[in-house]
Design a protein around this nucleic acid. Structure first.
Lengths: 230, 230
DNA sequence: ATTCCGTATTGATATATATCAATACGAAAA
DNA sequence: TTTTCGTATTGATATATATCAATACGGAAT
């Protein structure tokens, strides 16, 4: 992590959808109160338990969002990409992060003072509503993930995870797997060995093509079928 | 359900904490746009998939909030009490309920037009912020429940559920169990038979005293211990 | 009081899944 | 090139938990 690099990053101004609800003047304030930092793979962007003093936007790269639970076990919540606000639900509750975020690839991140965003939220009701929408959408996502973890079996959950990676993260059925088997397990709620075995089954059934760091979904229909209660 | 009973219900004006952020005038608007309905145990207050046209506040009684998942299985999210806003995360996303709510006891509920609340949210930034806090707090709760379902074993989850019922729902270690074993299972993520067996163990270990509809937590320390990774 | 029906309880069994242990592989370092 | 080390893979086994089946219980209806 290189905190010396502190500069304006014009290129990520309008990344978060909700920033479009700000006026020129308000956006200016945001620009004056942000700074950029770079991270290498594996480096922690912020840590569970630390104060939510800044909101984070990735301008480049991907990061994993995860909770450090009991017994040193981790639960991965999802993968953060550019255009998203990363600021946990603790922001409006206890001003503490309730999960950690770590870079998966090279990452450029913009930090924006949370006080500034909160103040803008109070001034601009469109912005407030957008933020409500953002939080709601994420809560809903967590909800459904919770449901599938509770009710689906491993095959279904792993299929779901692959679909998530293809559709939501990479936007393609042919992508480079940036997660280790361990991490895939943390994301789909199973042991790494189970990930390996099921991935192998999917390969044998010609549902996916798993060439080391590259994953290609061959039979999406079947994968979707498995994900719905496989 | 008796929809003919439509009257102002003065007694529940200030129940939801966030309503305190409204002015007299704004509160007046809320009062003009609400109506009261009564429900009997088992009756559905609103159903998953239906439009979020109204926010609901209970002025009396308790209700279960649950998701109807795959394969007719249910997942109970929690128990709603008076003083709380019941309006799922769909409100700001797709204007659909993502869970159902059904009365567990006799219930009196106030329905308030969602459009009215949303408009007030746009006018009054304190109210908007309060709503953000409310949603965040709930999201955080879901988060931790998710974590414990993923990482704890049955004993820990059931202990946690009992603590939830005592502390959050009834405010006493001595309460009447309003949930069936089936429902207890839906709330703690296990089969009803498992609930029965573990409850019996807790009784044998003198952690609880289970006299049919009444539950008394005798050894809270031990129950807490079990809940933390039992 | 007797019947009836849903829920609770109990025991036996099946199944999903984690854990443990051993080995293989592949990239970085020497 | 060889060594080293973390990750991946595979197989064997243990364990948690669900499911199935039978019975018991308690309140509502007759």
């Amino acid at each position: 992590m290189d905190r010396t690099k502190k500069e304006l990053c014009e290129e990520c101004d309008l990344e978060w959808e909700n920033l479009k609800n700000l006026t020129e003047k308000e956006l200016e304030i945001v620009n004056l109160n942000k700074f950029k930092t770079d991270f290498k793979p594996g480096e922690i962007i912020f840590k569970q338990g630390s104060p939510t003093s800044n909101a984070v936007f990735l301008s480049n790269g991907m990061a994993k969002i995860y909770i450090e639970g009991f017994d040193n076990k981790r639960m991965m919540v999802g993968i953060a990409k550019p255009k998203q606000l990363i600021a946990g639900p603790g922001t409006f509750v206890d001003e503490r992060h309730h999960y950690s975020v770590a870079a998966l690839t090279d990452v450029s991140a913009c930090f924006v003072k949370m006080d500034v965003l909160k103040e803008l939220m109070r001034q601009n009701s469109k912005f407030a509503e957008g933020w409500l929408q953002d939080i709601s959408r994420k809560a809903l996502g967590t909800f459904y993930k919770f449901l599938s973890h509770t009710q689906k079996k491993m095959h279904g959950r792993l299929a779901e995870t692959l679909i998530y990676l293809a559709d939501e993260v990479h936007g393609s059925d042919n992508f480079t797997m940036i997660l280790s088997r361990q991490e895939l397990g943390e994301l789909s709620g199973m042991a790494k060995e189970s990930v390996v075995r099921i991935l192998k089954e999917f390969s044998e059934d010609s549902i996916i093509d798993d060439k080391c760091p590259n994953i290609k979904i061959i039979n999406k229909e079947k994968l979707i079928m498995v994900s719905k209660m496989g």
